[in-house]
Amino acid sequence: MSYTDGPGARIAGLGHYQPARVVTNDDLANEWGVETNDAWIQDRVGIKARRFAGPDEDTLTMSVAAAGKALANAGIEATDVDLVVVATLTPPTMLPNVASQVAARLGINAPGSYDINTACSGFSYGLATAQHAITAGAAKTALVIGAEKLTQVMDFTDRTTCILFADGAGAAVVTASARNAIGPVLWGSDGPRGDVLEIDDAGYIRQEGQAVFRWATTKLAPFALQACERAGVAPEDLVAFIPHQANVRIIDHIAKRLGATNAVIARDIIESGNTSSASIPLALSKLVERGELPSGGHALLFGFGGGLTYAGQVVTLP
């Protein structure tokens, strides 16, 4: 059965937000004193620049900005939303959760609201849970947001991590639909190896880069293919592949093994860095906004990272 058969949910609109401050690789070396250079970073991970939040910006403010833009693009009022889901590992407060505060800022009255933390796969997890709620009749219109202020957990003396991460947010409005336009989720985890990417006792993000790279390049492509199979869409019929923006070499490796020969491959990491939970909706929203993806086409979203967790689904583009 194709994922478009029967009632379900669809993405009605997208939005994103990035801080104004652009930080280049040379800025990291010259202003932050990181022992690195532009050529070294581009060769290993493909990043040229990233965005850092200002002191008055956090995961909440960026979530609100991205969500407001998504609502405007969907043509839906905040008062119509009855579920808010925020994927993040960097909330400004543990309690209240970010989702409830987003709802309050936007004037959404008494929605279901929860945060979800599966790190870099968080948006795909959040999108799936919102779809499940709508399909089950527990909600009609959901806001799904991926947002991070990773600079609050970065150690600028650790060049293996501080060159990677950045700040930003992306959001999707998900509504009930007569035709299901969000495919079945393929999700899972590899918990015994989860400590290769973690927040340590000092509050800094750490990773064993080679271990993460090997896991991503040897284990994940078959899962991405399974997500396509569950949706009944062949990889060559995808118009876009939007993976988590972890590393250009990882992105290209998975895309090649997947066989997405006709797809636009998101490489937003080049200009935005790794924004964890925000990376998929951020990259997707920017591509749609620039008119680089056709409305109605099939796109594979595929998140992976801390945990180690992964999740993906095929969606019909708004």
Rank of each mutant, 00 (worst) to 15 (best):
T135Q: 12
A166D: 06
H244L: 09
G68S: 03
V98I: 07
S276K: 15
L83K: 04
T59E: 00
A78K: 09
D26Y: 06
I108T: 01
P222G: 02
D200A: 11
R267K: 13
S189L: 13
A263M: 13
L186S: 15
N117M: 01
G137I: 07
A169N: 08
I250S: 01
L60C: 09
P91Q: 11
S279H: 04
A142R: 03
Y310A: 00
F241Y: 11
D26M: 13
Q152S: 15
T160F: 14
V233P: 02
E198S: 14
A224S: 03
C120W: 08
L220I: 11
A181M: 13
V23Q: 03
A67E: 07
I182Y: 02
S2T: 12
I242R: 04
L143R: 03
L28P: 00
A53C: 11
L150C: 06
D5T: 12
M1V: 08
N117P: 00
C228Q: 05
V22S: 00
L220S: 01
A147Q: 05
P235F: 07
S277C: 14
A12N: 03
T129L: 04
V315C: 11
A29R: 14
H244P: 03
F165Y: 11
I76W: 11
T275I: 10
G15H: 03
T93E: 11
A142I: 08
N109M: 15
K48T: 07
G46V: 06
A133P: 04
P92M: 09
Y17I: 01
A20G: 10
V315D: 05
R50D: 01
K149V: 14
C120A: 04
D237N: 13
H244T: 00
A231E: 02
P192A: 05
L143N: 04
K256V: 11
K256A: 14
R105V: 08
T4A: 10
F213E: 01
P318S: 06
A119H: 05
I254M: 02
M62Q: 02
L308W: 06
L14F: 12
P281I: 12
N73L: 12
V34N: 04
A246R: 13
R214Q: 15
V288W: 15
I205V: 14
P7F: 10
N262G: 03
R290S: 07
A12C: 10
H253W: 09
Q152A: 14
T61R: 08
I134A: 00
E77C: 09
V196Y: 11
W215E: 00
T217F: 14
G194F: 02
E31H: 12
L95T: 15
F213N: 01
A70I: 05
A29Y: 11
S272W: 15
T309M: 08
V86W: 09
V315P: 05
T175E: 08
M154H: 10
A202G: 15
P235K: 00
E198T: 13
I250T: 00
G273M: 14
T151M: 07
L282V: 02
N25A: 02
L284D: 01
A255Q: 03
A78E: 04
A169V: 06
S113W: 15
D200S: 03
H16N: 11
A53M: 12
V86I: 12
Y204N: 10
W32V: 11
